[in-house]
Design a protein around this nucleic acid. Structure first.
Lengths: 159, 159
DNA sequence: ATTGAAAAAATCAGAGA
DNA sequence: TCTCTGATTTTTTCAAT
């Protein structure tokens, strides 16, 4: 999956990598400032950013919000066990309807899916988990509450 | 935790909430365009964004990158069981040294910590998990590999 | 990819509700 | 306090090289 092909040009140009590194740290950095960091003119930087957007490497420009400051201080992983032949589409549609479900994945192993849930407090978390457990295709759930967020790394991986 | 106090001003001004909604979707939206959406002038929007930054509601402006496009298509949850009296600081320092560890949390329940790991492929994932399992304070690990990312919500949550 | 100009946006100052 | 208007500065964007 990481072999350079005509379809997959290299993995990432060193210049593009440098540009992305700056943008991950400051998504509003001006093209001129980025260019100063990577020894490129502003238009050249813009051209590369546009290409990274077209290629889908950059999914979007956003803000990273602090959940705790917004009152979403309680986080948990919820393993979900489903009835036989529960389709991924069914799971996705259901879990997507919960605003508290930040992420949901079908997984290997014991459980069928793992959810990441954000709630205001324990009481709220309990309510959400109960509602999920009451879904028709859910057999049982197992919750693991986050005590301390030790590491939160922005970006998709090593650079 | 969600009650308005002098320390915790309201939860979020409706205007601020609207501004954040726009910025989550497009972190480079101009103040004028945001203002048009929320019926405010550009300087007024900037003032509020600056305050949201000061308050820490907005953690940072960033780009959201697509892990798959960058060759990080394999994702897993790794439960880690540690020896008695392993300090959170020790865990954090150790796990932070792994670029593949996107997030690490100490947790309630059976395991001591849950890691989110991104790897290039299964072989790479296996190597990383083996290295983690070989850490002095690690007793054993249990990995759950993501088959299908059903839901990925960009909202409040470091990602 | 760079330079330089034009268009757009960000930023600042002043004043009013 | 919070906002708006208008001026200034910076950045984006486009064209030509």
């Amino acid at each position: 999956m990481a072999s350079p092909t005509p379809e997959n040009p290299g993995l990432l140009d060193p210049l593009d990598a440098a540009i992305l590194a700056v943008l991950v740290e400051d998504g509003r950095a001006s093209y001129a400032r980025i260019g100063a960091r990577v020894n490129l003119s502003a238009p050249a930087v813009k051209r590369r950013v546009d290409r990274l957007l077209e290629r889908g490497v950059i999914d979007a420009f956003t803000v990273r919000l602090d959940p705790a400051t917004l009152g979403w201080g309680t986080e948990a992983f919820v393993e979900v066990h489903c009835t036989e032949q529960t389709s991924p589409a069914r799971m996705r549609d259901t879990f997507e309807s919960y605003p508290e479900v930040i992420a949901a994945s079908s997984v290997t192993g014991d459980a069928d899916a793992v959810l990441e849930v954000r709630a205001h407090d324990m009481r709220h978390l309990e309510q959400v988990v109960e509602r999920i457990a009451a879904e028709p295709f859910v057999l049982r759930t197992r919750s693991t509450v986050v005590l301390n967020p030790l590491v939160r790394r922005p970006g998709p991986g090593p650079r």
